[in-house]
Design a protein around this nucleic acid. Structure first.
Lengths: 165, 165
DNA sequence: ATGGAGCCTCAACATTGGTTGAGGTCAAAT
DNA sequence: ATTTGACCTCAACCAATGTTGAGGCTCCAT
């Protein structure tokens, strides 16, 4: 610890790595990326306050949900800067994230159904398949899957299926 | 089409891009990576047989489930080479994938619970939280998330919880 | 026979999320 | 006093998944 009097105890980068399970290089990287912050002691060593552990937990959790670091940073930037974030602050973030999770679970569930109906049944067609078509939040109107001809009547079930032609 | 007599009609790369919704550059890339194959005509142009559409569908679907191309290639390599894959062939692959999907959905669901219990309750600790601990099958050993060390003793429950210290 | 569309190759670049290594500093322990 | 371990910076690199651009064919229609 830095030799100061009545301060919150801090963690060196090595300790933080140990406690968080992250590599030191990752911590450096997060700091470079503005996801966490440190103070330096007289010897230029980093010191982290304990709430960084919670930030890291949040970062890891978010990554597991597939959120890119840039978005995580944006979320973290919304935390109060002048005081240590409280339970309520984290709660707000996590609520937001849970919404994402809900969406993602729903997507995957639909995907699973489609997989059963679509690949499973042997009719994996670009024309009808959710699996294969950018469901919703995918690429803009432009590049999506095309239907066969503009004005072609909707393919009958199984019409146009590679299996059946 | 290449001026051959009684052959299956083929798709040029442009057509395939149009039908699949993928960029030509991506198709080239997939071919370089061994995920799809083409024949060349007298002018060195690529021609794809129609079942490539299905391969692409499978590739896209798999990617949406988060499977890396290398793994997709491995799966596709298991398809019979001497004949056009049949429904049963695709069925086997899709069954495998559905298992992955099941796992993934379960993970996310657990994650959501944890998010409620763990971040939400204000006790986001490295020691106990599924969210924060590398549950199981995360990214390959390579550049991804690191787990502590093989054999590092787990931190004590509640010890080190930012809230409690 | 000429223009343009469509295609070819190959190399370089982009992005995300980090890791690795070289070369140097600092403080505590022997 | 020296050694050791932890730490510092900076630049280079890695892997996955493509995209972009330069430079050059080839085929079809006019």
């Amino acid at each position: 610890m830095p030799s100061e009097s009545c301060t919150e105890p801090t963690l060196t980068v090595g300790k933080l790595a140990e406690r968080s399970g992250l590599a030191i290089s990752a911590l450096h990287f997060y700091e470079r990326s503005g996801l966490i912050h440190s103070t330096r002691d007289s010897g230029n060593r980093r010191h982290y306050s304990r709430d960084v552990l919670r930030r890291l937990a949040f970062i890891r959790a978010s990554q597991r949900v597939g959120i890119p670091l840039a978005a995580i940073k944006t979320a973290l930037d919304a935390l109060p800067k002048r005081r240590t974030p409280r339970e309520a602050d984290w709660f707000m973030l996590s609520t937001d994230w849970r919404t994402r999770l809900d969406d993602q679970i729903e997507q995957l569930t639909r995907l699973r159904e489609d997989l059963t109906n679509c690949i499973g049944c042997g009719c994996l067609s670009f024309a009808r398949c959710q699996l294969v078509n950018p469901g919703d939040a995918m690429r803009g109107e432009g590049a999506g899957a095309r239907r066969l001809e503009p004005g072609t009547p909707r393919p009958e079930p199984f019409e146009g299926c590679p299996l059946n032609s």
